[in-house]
Amino acid sequence: MSNNYSRPLVNRLGSTDLQELQQARADKYNLVSNLKIATDESTPQQIAHKIIQQLF
């Protein structure tokens, strides 16, 4: 993700800092989320299918 100009924090923070930021935000994300989708080792198409399954 480095050199991703649409995501400035990625360029400023190292991987350890990004992991810490994700951990700090995790409770807030979980509080407001309606869906939880496991995306590990899934293609974008598989993720889209999982989302559609949970919505309908």
Rank of each mutant, 00 (worst) to 15 (best):
V10Y: 11
N34L: 12
V10W: 09
N11I: 11
A48K: 05
Y29R: 03
S33Y: 01
L13Q: 08
I52Y: 07
S33F: 02
E41K: 14
L18M: 14
I52V: 14
I47E: 02
V32Q: 09
Q45G: 11
I37V: 15
Q46T: 04
T39D: 07
N11T: 10
L31C: 08
I51C: 09
D40V: 09
L55G: 01
S33D: 04
N30R: 15
F56G: 04
Q53V: 04
D27V: 06
S6T: 11
A26L: 15
N11L: 14
S6H: 11
R7I: 11
T16Q: 15
Y29N: 03
K28Q: 14
Y29V: 05
L35D: 01
N30C: 06
T39I: 11
Q23M: 04
V32G: 07
N30M: 11
H49P: 03
N11V: 11
K50N: 10
Q22A: 14
G14R: 13
L35A: 02
N11C: 12
V10F: 13
I52H: 12
R12G: 00
R12V: 01
N3S: 06
P8S: 12
N4S: 11
L18G: 07
Q23F: 02
L31M: 10
D27I: 07
L13P: 01
I37W: 07
L35E: 02
A48H: 03
D40M: 05
R7A: 15
I51Y: 04
Q23W: 01
D40L: 10
L18W: 06
R12M: 09
N4Q: 09
P8N: 12
L35V: 03
L13T: 01
N11S: 14
R7K: 10
H49C: 11
L9Q: 15
L35P: 00
S42P: 02
L18N: 06
F56Y: 04
A38M: 04
I51D: 05
N3W: 00
Q54R: 06
N3Q: 09
K36R: 08
T39F: 05
N11P: 05
Y29F: 09
L35I: 02
G14P: 04
M1N: 08
L31P: 00
I47T: 13
L9S: 13
P8T: 11
T39L: 07
Q46F: 02
Y5K: 13
P8D: 12
Q53Y: 03
E20C: 09
K50Y: 08
T16W: 10
H49S: 15
S33R: 05
S33N: 08
L21A: 14
Q22W: 07
Q19T: 05
T43A: 04
S42R: 15
N11Y: 09
N30P: 01
M1R: 05
S15T: 10
D40R: 10
I52P: 01
Q54K: 11
A26G: 00
Q19R: 14
K50D: 12
S42W: 08
R25N: 13
E41T: 08
D40A: 12
L55I: 09
V32C: 06
N30F: 12
L55N: 00
D27C: 04
N3C: 03
S42G: 04
F56E: 07
N4G: 02
G14I: 04
A38H: 06
P8G: 12
